[in-house]
Design a protein around this nucleic acid. Sequence first.
DNA 1: AAACCGGGGTA
DNA 2: TACCCAGGTTT
Length: 371
Amino acid sequence: MISSQEQIHPNHFAEPLLSWYDASKREMPWRDCGDPYRIWVSEIMLQQTRVDQATPYFHRFLGHFPTLEALATANRHEVLMAWEGLGYYSRARNLHDAAKTVLSKHGGVFPQTYHEIRALKGIGPYTAAAVASIAFGLPHAVMDGNVIRVLSRYFGIQEDVSLPATKAQIQQLADGLLDTARPGDFNQAVMELGATVCTPKSPLCAGCPLSTGCVAYKTGKTAELPFKAPKKKIPHHQIVVGICVDDEDRILIALRPEDKMLGGLWEFPGGKVEAGESRKEALIRELKEELGVEVMPGLRLCEVKHAYTHFKITLNAWICRIKTGEPEPRPKASKKLRWITSSELTEYPFPKANRKVTEALQTWLENRRKA
DNA sequence: AAACCGGGGTA
DNA sequence: TACCCAGGTTT
């Protein structure tokens, strides 16, 4: 907590910050456009995603869906195709659902109050405050990873910032510092400072407009703040998948359930290798469980390593034939299957790890055709 | 409060 | 390798 003597006059914070922002801000395709749709899409893409990573996807997405109505009237498959590779696919599903809500419940006009914005799918406290302030000039302070870092250093907050109580304290500080004449610019300025100057490692304090009032800078503790409790180790799984090919070189793919991880994307059937089991044994077992048929693994096509947020995988893919006399593959409940040609692989959204497999597969098929 | 949800950049 | 990112939802 900060004592009363250390209370900061908002102007001593906002004024130098906004001057710095006006002179130093980066160009972004959604910045200073005044279009709630573009600002909204950008804020969803920027959840847990850096500006440089999101920018090409923003252009691609707006190319497919230039207006809210275009997005609302598109189908799920198209939306996920435009999002493929960006991750956190629930963002795309929620964005799509929310666009439909705005069209049907708000007459296609983006809602202009904090609470109506907050009520849309995929919009939490951060995004509601961001859109409200940036698109509509409403006085709501954002709190994201940048704000947490900047304010925890500025005020010398030593409590664990992952605790809800600490976050509530930082939100209060942000609310008090907000420049109500320029709330959108103030919010973007704190985040811009966090992204370019007050960085997690090796912050550039010499170029910081707030250094003279910064507790962490004055006490040499920028490297210790913000404080977070150490994280747990994440597991590493061995994954096996089968690429079932029929006599006409068609390939079997499966649709992941909408409400699960990577929901709405397609994949090759497979699963985890269990303890005491060989990879091929696991492959035969998983495909028997998922498809109800016995397969014969042939060529091991490729190995892909991939890191998710909470676990890592090493994925091995085999070309498979379904044994003669077996029935047509039958998916487990709520899982759709489809036989497609190799050229159709690019028309279906795949997770990153599976996309690497489709690329290896197309290369292999091409080389086999030449030979 | 903790778990879950992708992918990529950075040191 | 470990950490982090313009977070939100679910349990």
